[in-house]
Each structure stands twice: as C-alpha cells, then as structure tokens.
C-alpha cells in the first residue's frame, strides 16, 4: 500500500513500489489528464509537479513519490492564469501534449516570472509538441507573465 498526495488529496493505492507514478495517476487514481507519450523521460507528456517542480511522472516510482506533494493538470483547476493564457492564445491543436506543457510553464513562471524567449525555449525544451504549437506556447507564457503580444515571432 502506497499513500500519495495528489492535488491536495490523499490516496492509498495498492500497487507495487516500482511502478512509475504516471501509471498510478492514470490507472489507479484515474486522473487521465496526465498523458503517456514515451515512458522514458523524453517527451514531457507525463509532466506533473512534485513539490512544485515540474518533472516527468514516468521517471519516478510510486514509492519515490510518497510523502511528496503531487500536482496534476486537474489540480490547477480551470482558471489558473497559465490556463487562461493558453485559452487566450488558442494554443492546443490535438491537445495531447498540453497538460505537460502547461505544468512545465507554471513551474517556469514560479521560478522566473519574466522569462525571455531564450528562457522559455530552455525551460520548455523537454516538452515535445508533435503538432508544433511552440510559437503559441511562447506567446501564452509571455501573456501569463503579463506581457501579452510577445514571443512567437522570429
């Protein structure tokens, strides 16, 4: 039995200790906003926040996540400034990568409230978007940082 704190709620899950957190979140807790894309830490689709830091949930085991504060996209609710910026800039296409992108962006802005294009590119580097929404992601992050109209241009 492993106890996890996800989005400020405690869950007891019957799962082997070395199962990746990603699958516990998706299959046991059934919060499916966190996505599976590669399982090897390469795509960022599974990004969650652990104690405020964005990281790929496929690369941490359920056991390692015990006692830590896990935030998934569902934990952001619907009115987080980054989500609103995402809506304003109409970022998603297929949408599959966007939970991870948003959580990564939230962490970036917490650490760096006024990121430059270069800061954004560096911080978002591990989050692949197969649809190529990168220019709008940049613009949305600038917007959430209180600088609408920036980014996304060559």
């Amino acid at each position: 039995m492993i106890s996890l704190n996800i989005n400020n709620k405690n869950y007891q899950v019957e799962v082997e200790a070395d199962v990746p957190l990603l699958w516990v979140i998706r299959e046991h807790v059934q919060l499916t906003g966190t996505k599976f894309g590669c399982g090897i830490g390469e795509c960022g689709a599974c990004t969650v926040q652990i104690d405020g830091e964005a990281m790929p949930s496929c690369q941490i085991t359920a056991k390692e996540a015990e006692g830590r504060k896990i935030t998934t996209i569902e934990g952001l609710g619907e009115g987080h400034p980054v989500q609103l910026a995402w809506i304003e800039e109409d970022v998603p296409q297929c949408g599959y990568c966007q939970s991870g992108q948003i959580l990564q962006a939230v962490s970036l802005l917490a650490a760096n409230p006024r990121p430059t294009d270069a800061d954004i590119d560096a911080a978002m580097n591990g989050n692949t978007c197969r649809c190529g929404t990168y220019p709008r992601i940049r613009r949305a992050i600038h917007r959430a940082a209180g600088k609408p109209g920036q980014g996304g241009k060559p």
């Binding site: 499916t32 966190t34 996505k35 569902e74 970022v91 998603p92 949408g95 966007q98 948003i102």
Partner: peptide
C-alpha cells in the same frame, strides 16, 4: 473564432481513447 475544444484541452478533461476507462 477561438477553437471550441481549447478549454477542455487545457484542463485535462479532453478525452482521448487512451483515457477511456
């Protein structure tokens, strides 16, 4: 027009087949 599917693609609610339980 703003995309009608954007809100649910920013809050984890958009249902992909992989999410079906």
């Amino acid at each position: 027009k703003k995309r009608l599917d954007t809100p649910e693609k920013t809050n984890g609610k958009a249902l992909f087949a992989l999410d079906v339980m």
